[in-house]
Design a protein around this nucleic acid. Structure first.
Lengths: 152, 152
DNA sequence: CGGTATCCCATTTGATACTG
DNA sequence: CAGTATCAAATGGGATACCG
């Protein structure tokens, strides 16, 4: 299977990956959640080449993850803002951050900490069951297959 | 910046991505969480080529995400089992699944559903604050930068 | 079954230059 | 600042064959 066909799969994970399953895209999203909106800021903070950044931003706008809007008319200048669809990717980034903090840490401690404004605590968010409120343990979850994941 | 240097960054997201920031790797993990352990099963269920799969599995074993162990001596046969480090990637996969279910769905409904065994409910797990228990809203989170994300 | 070895094409990307 | 154009180099990946 070629990667370009992966989005046509019925699996939601694969479909999600067809949009955000790219190293650079995730790095761009990291910056977006840190408040970055402009091309040059994305570029300098991630270290991506212009070419790659331009291409990824275009694709993400097409996918509806970012909205491109002018913030200046003369000269024309654009910025990229997360849409609701884009904002919903927050849990993905947080999950990666948590895992990196736990398993890829060094002695100097994490570079970014997350403060939950309502309660003021510095936290690592946890996934819980919306029904019973318990923290999720992978071994207590049963995946139920409804369709062949490879079908078109 | 080249991608190969990204793991040397102090950002936990980037470090996590240096291990799992690959399309195929995430697909392999998806299968692992569905109970798959053997080479041929990974291959047929993801549609990857042998070459790519072998390479990714080797790398993941080196990173400590999978453990390679013999399940038969004669002939010698191996299987790949998630380690604790690997199991901790579950929230990443679930976050992707949730997002895909919500934003990339089709009329036929999700291909995979998650049942929370303890309460028996089919759920989309949610991220909550471990301190106050509230569901996480990205806009209620403040990222606090402790170090330059691009430093070595 | 569980890989490894080879070959070769397609895509990606980093560098650099250029533009409104 | 916010890109686009171009090109050479590297990488990735499919196909196929082979082996214990």
């Amino acid at each position: 299977m070629k990667w370009s066909e992966i989005g046509g799969t019925p699996c939601s994970v694969a479909r999600a990956l067809s949009v955000v399953g790219d190293r650079w895209v995730l790095l761009v999203l990291r910056e977006a959640f840190m408040g970055v909106r402009r091309f040059e800021d994305f570029r300098s903070r991630t270290g991506m080449s212009r070419r790659v950044l331009a291409e990824r931003l275009t694709a993400l706008v097409e996918e509806g993850v970012f909205e491109r809007r002018a913030y200046s008319d003369r000269p024309e200048r654009f910025e990229y803002r997360l849409t609701a669809k884009g904002r919903d990717l927050y849990p993905v980034l947080v999950a990666l951050l948590n895992w990196g903090d736990h398993w890829m840490a060094d002695e100097e401690g994490p570079a970014v900490e997350l403060v939950h404004d309502p309660c003021g605590a510095t936290v690592h968010p946890v996934q819980t069951c919306p029904r019973c409120g318990q923290a999720i343990d992978p071994r207590a979850m049963t995946p139920v297959l409804k369709r062949d994941l490879r079908a078109t």
